[in-house]
Design a protein around this nucleic acid. Structure first.
Lengths: 252, 252
DNA sequence: CAGCGGCAAAGTGCATGCAATTGAGGCGGC
DNA sequence: GCCGCCTCAATTGCATGCACTTTGCCGCTG
């Protein structure tokens, strides 16, 4: 919450950083659905800056994979394919296993308290909107990562967690509720106990269950983006062959 | 080489992309040492574009961790701390284990051929400059990652591999030569054989050996940046205590 | 009535200009 | 002689302007 001294890398220039954070949050809370348009000047107007800055922010977000930038076209909130969603979760699992491995048995009392407080907040938000509880669940993982004191790891876990958040809004059922608060508590307990293998397994199954519960199936129709639906049909020249076969049949 | 249709995410606008790629390459080949200044207008002039574009490119590179951006100051090539270097390698190990796990036994003949060709190129470059062989070794890993067809994984592996490259130039001995070409060949062989566990272990030990061979020690003096040398002494108040002890001794 | 060509609005790509901040060198005071 | 201050060149922060591209609409034609 405190105005962290120096984020050190990009988006430090604040004007850009503010927009990035706002957009990120809007995206993961699904205020901006995948495919939503993000014209530079509307953004600039909304945030009281020029297009230059809005553009820069979009660039950063695109680098994180939350936004898609196509030349001469309006930027849109990314619409990851189902496969990309699954890939993101796979990467996330490995990364977060690394996090808990580094953290097992090394948490200070203050850190444990912070984690518990966060999970309490998650519990409290149970009744509220789905978007908020998803965000809180995601932030739990980021909080965990930030305790490793490894800026790189924090960055990657954050990014991939945001991406997963984004995909959840695309492919998950209306709500999967109960986003594993009890599992979060179990992870904290295992971390305190310091059992590396146990906590790695816990994290693995936690994320894996979220992934499989959420990414229900190749999602035949849920991708609201035409491009997405068409993707499998654009396979190199496989389409060609089918077309030819169809023609042959017709000619017969 | 071909003007790839659509890199799909950021840096697609080409002018920006060209600068990014050039800078990246210059950095990993150590033409630009860590700490080297990157003023926007020199860059713009050099590449025949305006500051706006150069600035945007620097933003992207900063997001990748290759460049450090400080408000109102000239951008510089990043100077990762020793700890960050180690963290990067740890992440890289996990990510690349994932790569080979996904690839084991699934490579097409063409892919195997491409890999072999690349390793041959590495072999051929043995006599040449260190920078080139380091770059080739890095590109082998990126080539491998690109075969997973997971854009996210490719991006992360690339980024972290570049970062590792960067740290090698900071902390490794003059040259560790023999960057494990034989190990690369062994990995290919194991991939073809399809032995997941074997190839994961191989990749792990390969990267780990590179890391430990390169990151020789907390590198007492090699960090040419004053800030870096001073970093360990800025530890909270630990420094204070030492100073007090020193004073006490002197006072005696 | 379907298809096609062109026109205008919207939006991005990029350069340039001006204000603000920083770092360095010179100058005066101690 | 050394230290602090002040001024100025260098450099970034940001907004605006112009050119080009895309898109959606409208009327024309067959």
């Amino acid at each position: 919450m405190a105005p962290r001294a120096a984020p050190k890398s990009a988006e430090s220039s604040d004007k850009v950083g503010v927009i990035c954070r706002a957009l990120r949050r809007a995206i993961i809370e699904q205020a901006l659905e995948p495919g939503a348009k993000l014209p530079e000047d509307s953004l600039g107007e909304r945030f009281g800056v020029s297009r230059t800055i809005a553009r820069h922010a979009l660039g950063q977000l695109a680098a994180e994979g939350l936004v898609e930038l196509r030349r001469n076209r309006i930027a849109v909130v990314a619409t990851p394919s189902w496969q990309e969603a699954r890939d993101a979760f796979d990467i996330r699992i490995e990364l977060e296993r690394l996090v808990v491995r580094q953290l097992a048995g090394k948490l200070t009392k203050a850190q444990v308290a912070a984690l518990n407080a966060h999970v309490d907040a998650e519990d409290a938000a149970r009744g509220g909107s789905d978007a908020v509880s998803i965000r809180l669940a995601t932030e739990f993982h980021i909080l965990l990562a930030s305790m490793t004191n490894s800026p790189i790891l924090v960055r990657y876990v954050s990014e991939v967690a945001y991406r997963c958040c984004l995909t959840l809004s695309l492919y998950s059922r209306p709500h999967s509720s109960e986003c594993g608060v009890t599992e979060h508590r179990a992870i904290i307990a295992a971390l305190v106990k310091g059992d590396e293998a146990k906590v790695m397994g816990l994290m693995h199954s936690h994320l894996d269950s979220v992934a499989t519960r959420a990414l229900v199936a190749p999602a035949p129709q849920r991708g609201r983006d035409l491009l997405d639906i068409l993707a499998p049909y654009a396979e190199d020249d496989g389409g060609e062959r089918v077309v030819k076969m169809a023609k042959a049949v017709r000619a017969r």
